[in-house]
């Protein structure tokens, strides 16, 4: 989906020190419940043979996909891709907390807030964006690993970082229907293609699957038959006039 602006994150993996200032900043800014987090730093673990060890930290959050699978399953229309900013947002007033989208996100970047009965996720701190502030995680990033900006604007900090990067990786995912998620989070200067962060197959809840596969055909058939029956009589009525029915 082409949007006016295309806000996204550029993550310099070489600069992340896993201090988690971003996690706390996000939680405070967005009043995220104590059991939850909207963003993560994924630790790819200590690798290599002693003493030649390596360890990579991957800051991680919603990819604000071009073609997000989460919006595809949202029944109430609460989850949507914002046409102005390109951010994938949840209208929590409209969300009924069923969690279809949580299962459908290949990046596991959403969670169900049981206390509030709604789904929550990274919003790119849109409330800060509106007053020209960087998202809380980006503003406080001690290692300057997190960058954010309009990827449609070639002069944004994020676009420039992307242009000057040594390596660029993106966790794109091909959906069952052949389309791609088109994530708007770019990882630069580091290797992130690791099972700890790679996208998973979207999951669809049994309820949603049953609905789609079983109940829709059944109801369509029922209503169809009923309509057909009624149509037959109506046609007959038109053709034969009303006389027949009068005694």
């Amino acid at each position: 989906m082409a949007t006016k602006k295309r806000y996204g994150f550029v993550i310099d993996v070489s600069r992340c020190i896993d201090c988690r200032a971003c996690l706390v900043a996000c939680s405070v800014e967005n009043q995220v419940g104590m059991k939850y987090t909207r963003i993560w730093v994924r630790d790819l673990g200590v690798k290599g043979d002693y003493p030649h060890l390596e360890r990579t930290f991957v800051p991680y959050n919603c990819m604000h996909c071009d073609n997000p699978p989460c919006t595809q399953v949202c029944v109430s229309g609460a989850t949507y891709k914002d046409a102005d900013t390109g951010l994938v947002l949840v209208d929590q007033e409209a969300c009924i907390g069923c969690g279809y989208c949580v299962d459908a996100c290949p990046y596991s970047a959403r969670y169900l807030d049981r206390e509030r009965g709604v789904v929550d996720k990274c919003t790119g701190c849109i409330q800060r964006l509106q007053v020209n502030q960087q998202p809380a995680c980006v503003a406080t990033c001690v290692g300057r690993a997190r960058m954010f900006g309009d990827l449609n604007d070639p002069n944004s900090e994020a676009s420039l970082a992307l242009k000057n990067a040594d390596t660029v990786q993106r966790l794109d995912y091909e959906l069952p229907d052949g389309t791609h998620t088109g994530p708007n989070v770019y990882f630069i200067n580091g290797e992130v293609m690791d099972p700890a962060v790679l996208p998973r197959e979207p999951k669809y809840t049994t309820a949603e699957t049953a609905w789609r596969r079983l109940l829709i055909p059944a109801v369509v058939a029922g209503i169809g038959l009923s309509f057909l029956g009624q149509a037959t009589f109506f046609t007959k009525q038109l053709l034969e006039g009303e006389k027949e029915f009068e005694e």
């Binding site: 200032a21 405070v28 406080t140 001690v142």
Partner: peptide
């Protein structure tokens, strides 16, 4: 107090706070 930000004018923060600084309201 609902959020703490690093003061960009202060040489020790330069606009940033670490996890502990961010958690100060708690």
């Amino acid at each position: 107090v609902v959020k703490l930000e690093g003061n960009p004018d202060h040489p020790h923060s330069l606009g940033k706070l670490c996890a502990r600084g961010q958690s100060g309201i708690m």
